[in-house]
Design a protein around this nucleic acid. Structure first.
Length: 211
DNA sequence: CGGTTTTGACCAGCGC
DNA sequence: GCGCTGGTCAAAACCG
């Protein structure tokens, strides 16, 4: 992930005005999504989408001061307070077992890529833990989590319905361990995708940036 | 066999 | 307060 950070580091690294300038290309994406919905859910579409994208961008670009650092990292996802008994009580499901854990905001980095494959090998190992169909997108969104112990990094991958070739990947959190694979591989994946960096006014493919 | 994906259900947040 | 939507869990299926 460090690689990504470096690659798109120009956005996040900006010391000043770090709020808005980062991820301008995401703004582009939101407009794309808006284009997608083709006006269904009139009245709801604009506000809903804008709010959706807005929060998305907000979380991405800056830390919301809403909670004000309320929760230190609980660090233990597997609280599993309920034993098998609860399972018997509730067949299939029981997702919301943990209670004490609050939402802690962690940095999120998102970008669009153009690729044929949803899952780009970024050097880390991911385990898929969910898949959900989102509104206004015919392609489902996939949720992945880093399999490394103690590493709570998550990422979600979604493909735009309009542009089948465009894949939006959102990373959440920071890896606390080195990459498993060599970085050469990363270079390899660049050859099969183009990164939309919408900063500035025109698109440029990462292809050119690195070669 | 171990790890990963699949898949339906549950839950929390938000809007109405 | 209800319903919709997105995010997560976990058992079962799947795959090397």
């Amino acid at each position: 992930m460090e690689n990504y950070h470096m690659l798109f580091g120009t956005t996040a690294a900006q010391p000043s005005s770090s709020t808005s300038n980062s991820y301008n290309f995401l703004a582009g994406s939101s407009s794309l999504l808006r284009d997608n919905d083709r006006g269904q859910q009139a009245g709801h579409s604009a506000s809903g989408l804008s709010s959706h994208g807005g929060s998305f961008l907000a979380e991405l670009s800056g830390n919301s001061s809403k909670d004000g650092g309320a929760s230190p990292p609980a660090a233990s996802r597997g609280e599993s307070s309920a034993g098998p008994v609860a399972e018997a009580d509730r067949p299939a499901g029981g997702a919301g077992k943990r209670k004490g854990e609050k939402k802690e905001r962690r940095p999120r980095y998102a970008f669009q890529t153009r690729s044929q494959v949803d899952i780009l090998d970024d050097g880390y190992r991911w385990r898929k833990y969910g898949q959900k169909a989102v509104k206004n997108n015919k392609f489902p969104r996939s949720y992945y989590r880093c399999t490394h112990q103690g590493c709570n990094v998550k990422k979600q991958v979604q493909r735009l319905s309009r542009d089948e070739g465009v894949v939006v990947t959102t990373y959440e959190g920071t890896h606390t361990h080195p990459i498993e694979k060599s970085n050469d591989n990363f270079e390899h994946i660049l050859t099969q995708m183009q990164i939309y960096s919408g900063m500035g006014s025109n698109f440029s493919s990462s292809h050119n940036m690195f070669h």
